[in-house]
Design a protein around this nucleic acid. Structure first.
Lengths: 239, 239
DNA sequence: CGATATTTTGAAATAATTCAAAGGCAGTGG
DNA sequence: CCACTGCCTTTGAATTATTTCAAAATATCG
């Protein structure tokens, strides 16, 4: 059995099949510098990525320069699921990123021949959908400060769930590897509004900044009141 | 082989296995009146639905009465995918609805034992995710009139893709089985803003109403300019 | 036809955006 | 080491799109 790394490997833990071994044998570790694209818009969906470390922004661009970030993805998240021959989104490294790149065809064959692997994969796909639904709710229903609070909970949950060494406890210390523009494009706001919302939380002693790219949550209860829907994971149960 | 109906049956076309036969044997057709819930918030995810006819609103409710509609689902759409033991959303019939209801456990077993079925199911799941991403873009980046135009294209594409008799040509006639409040809650706007946006499109002779629940697109080019991202399906290729 | 609910339109209020400028931080080169 | 440059972030003031509040018009249903 070839060496296996990453979240995809975890999904296939305890499973063995020629197609699975072929998949992991075909996986190539790649490295990206900040600003580099893992996937560009309209690109053929020939590859599939499993992030080992770093942060990636998945975005959709409009004709007129508008941009919506759909997700910030870090270690243990997968990238590249598509129902079509070309990929409508853009995946950009925000920090130095390591990822394993698999040929789609090999993934497809492994999924078809290894039902347990496919089953785990389906659960992950469903979680991604649920996260997108959270996002729709946040953008559709919440005010600027609420969206930002919700964003902090999102990052906090992801930092815990998708840390490189596997799931760990949630922490009140939040890393913000993305720029204010990235946050704005994720939340459907402008840079200025994001900045003002941060200032409002700061003024209320709800959060405190170390530097502009990492902050401390001082009053998690207040953040939950603002951005809550049970902290993004409670309803995820422990299934 | 037991009688098979609905989209789930199409996904399993040409496939045969004891688990698949069991699944379809366990499927029960159910009927719902407008306002009835197929699924309520927090309900255990024991069932899975395959809509045969009518329209269902899938929504997420906030603590304080806010509501975000995540999708309008009609014939040939599936409902109830969840990664957790309880379902965070609410599914409500807007019109009289017929659906086949399957036990989740039976579905799960059929997916594990019938790879081709699981593969088709995965594609559908991915399409749902892509549709949610479209939604995020629309709500996050577009103005009120643009959101409404985008919504009309969404309905138009769904009317064609998910009509009871299988996919058919797109038409300029759009059915609006939902109320203005439903549309508002889908687009992250208020009833009044939706109404004003409709009026603006009417005044510009872009659309015309028959009655308040069905309209005609007079200038599809203009609707595309406003709400477009290539009409929601172009980039979906013909895969 | 009357009664109720939904939709449209109007006017005032507000949250967020836009435009503009100042402040802070990081890296480069003197 | 400090100053300079460029970029990102914050803050301020004016503008604008959308919301809120209120009422009229229209549709729906018994």
């Amino acid at each position: 059995m070839t060496e296996r790394r990453g979240h995809l490997a975890e999904m296939a833990r305890d499973e063995d099949s020629p197609e699975l071994n072929h998949l992991f044998a075909e996986g190539r570790e790649r490295h990206y510098s900040p600003g580099e694209h893992l996937i560009t818009e309209g690109e053929r969906t020939d590859y599939f990525y499993d992030i080992l470390s770093g942060t990636v922004a998945l975005a959709r661009n409009g004709r007129d320069g508008r941009r919506q970030i759909l997700a910030f993805m870090s270690a243990r998240q997968i990238l590249g699921a598509s129902s079509t021959p070309s990929y409508p989104n853009l995946a950009t490294a925000l920090t130095p990123v390591s990822a394993v790149c698999y040929p789609r065809a090999a993934l497809e064959r492994a999924l078809v021949t290894t039902p347990k692997f496919a089953s785990n994969f389906r659960v992950v796909l469903t979680q991604i959908l649920e996260s997108a639904h959270d996002h729709v709710y946040t953008i559709g229903q919440r005010s600027a400060v609420e969206r930002l609070a919700s964003f902090l909970l999102y990052l906090r949950a992801n930092q815990a769930r998708f840390s490189t060494g596997g799931p760990r406890e949630k922490s009140e210390h939040i890393e913000l590897p993305m720029t204010r523009l990235d946050i704005a494009d994720f939340l459907g706001l402008t840079i200025e509004t994001v900045s003002r919302a941060f200032s409002a939380l700061k003024k209320g002693n709800v959060i405190a900044f170390r530097d502009s790219h990492s902050c401390e949550i001082l009053r998690i209860d207040r953040i939950r009141e603002l951005g809550g829907r049970d902290d993004f994971t409670q309803h995820r149960g422990s299934a």
